[in-house]
Amino acid sequence: MSCWETVQAYALRSLGYGERLLPRADITLCEQITLIGSGLIWNVYFGAIALSLGFGLATLLALGKASSQIWLRKPAEIFVFVFRGSPLFIQFFLAYETFVLLPKSGIPINLGFVELTADTRWLTRAWAGALIVLFLNTSAYAAEIFYGALKSIPRGDHEAADAYGLTGWRRFRRITWPTMLRLAWPAYTNEAIFLFHATTLVYFSGFPAWRQMGDALYYASYFADKTFNPFIPYPIVAVYFIALTLMIIAIFGVINRRLNRHLGIPKRIRYRPQLIR
């Protein structure tokens, strides 16, 4: 099989298209690069969706944590503590076991006039179940970052808002939120990078890879098992992830410049991985 044929056969293998059987013997470099790249689709899927959904929840949680109302503050604090204080690996396992225990036939929901059956089977699949865990997890981490930024908004900004008579939603939309994002952005970039790295855990925790449709690291460890040579597949994963990381930094850098555009030359995002998680 030539390299182009391999690409045609395996480029979308992680989504279930193309050749059904994975390469078994005489594994070529081309096959490894194609299949691991194909797995990267899942990493991008998990990371991008969890991040964009988590952004909203994280903002709400940060506001809840900063709230003076105890019935808003406590739940937000507990949520953030549980998801930041326990390993993601355990969260995956726990979520999977919970989803497995849900009745297979679905949960009947009685609305009085009509009875619906909520299908629960898809929750045990990684695309949904793991996504929910990643979404909640990144929300908790991002909430802590946003909360820290919320607390360090300069007092003068709020005083200026008061002076202009801005209150409620308009004050939040025009003053609090943009400043919070601007302050939180460098740390949030780190969180985004970590989230994409964390997506590699999905197929190594409770969630099984259905029909050998897995992520980049799943295929890399498959090749390492088959060829008993870790020196080719893992560096391929490393190269893919470095490229992904650089892409995230570039995208977040553009947003960072926009958030800081009124301040002249923006501070460059310094990527300091150890200080976030």
Binding site: L217, A220, F228, Y234
Partner: peptide
């Protein structure tokens, strides 16, 4: 080294690489 690459990839890699 640890910046751009998921740590779990290192875990899986080093255990086999060290052994070999």
């Amino acid at each position: 080294m640890v910046r751009g690459v998921p740590d779990i990839a290192f875990f899986l890699f080093f255990v086999i690489a060290l052994d070999q």
